[in-house]
Amino acid sequence: MTKSPFRPDDAPDASVLDMHRTLIRTLERRGLLRAGLTLGSLVMLTGCDVKRPEAVEEALLAISNLNDRVQALLFDANKLAPTYPASMILRPPKFNAYYDVTDVKPVNGATWKLELGGLIQNKRPWTLQDLQALPQRSIVIKHICVEGWSYIGGWTGVPLRTFLERTGADLRAKYVAFQTADNYPSSIDMAAALHPQTVLALQYGGQPLADPFGFPVRLRTAVKLGYKNPKWITAIEVTNTYPGGFWESKGFPWFAGM
């Protein structure tokens, strides 16, 4: 595997950071004060090798949590992301994962099942045929990565709202969490899950998803950055307990709304 700043070699144990996160929420006031101090003092050190002392890290995560709340306030459930004509769809789409494409492990669509958990009434597992039988929606939207790149993609699938309604999910719950075949846990807030431009995508550009892009099912939402769009989904859970996510456990903001 290539070395990457996106994949730190000294990645902290995810469980430890997740534990910190809940702790930090109670320490926000203190964290903000510390950030005020460190912003000033660390500036003097930018030329040097700035390490991540615990206090700085906690302060930054505390502000990040605060930002998550500000972002939730800024989110307008009725605001639609710009859409584009089908002629602008990039074929094939851009590949990205936390590993290179050669490590993609294709999922067998015939035996694949979508498991459900948490605050959902009917937890019967879903097959690909079941999902294909639900009403579909096509959207041509921009995929924007936190890294800065973007492309226009055309996705067809089941609106997540439709799926959650059909399965009797508690739509007042806080989070919708995903498990994937490539061990890339992810989660979004319920407001984003219910947004009309959030779909469980089964197709790209009118064709079934190709293996590297998440066959058989991936999430595509126009209101979150790229890393909130898990591929190769195997399980969906509706919950009120903060579920975190792959990059979130390594420091990236959780809300990541656009």
Binding site: P5, F6, P8, A35, L39, L42, T46, G47, C48, D49, V50, K51, R52, E57, A59, L60, L61, I63, S64, N67, V146, E147, W247, K250, G251, F252, P253
Partner: peptide, 21 residues
């Protein structure tokens, strides 16, 4: 690296979104 704040992208993002306020 010696010109960047944040050990890798996630922490640069966090610094940026803290500094912005």
């Amino acid at each position: 690296g010696y010109l960047r704040l944040g050990e890798w992208a996630a922490w640069s993002v966090n610094w940026h979104f803290a500094g912005m306020w």
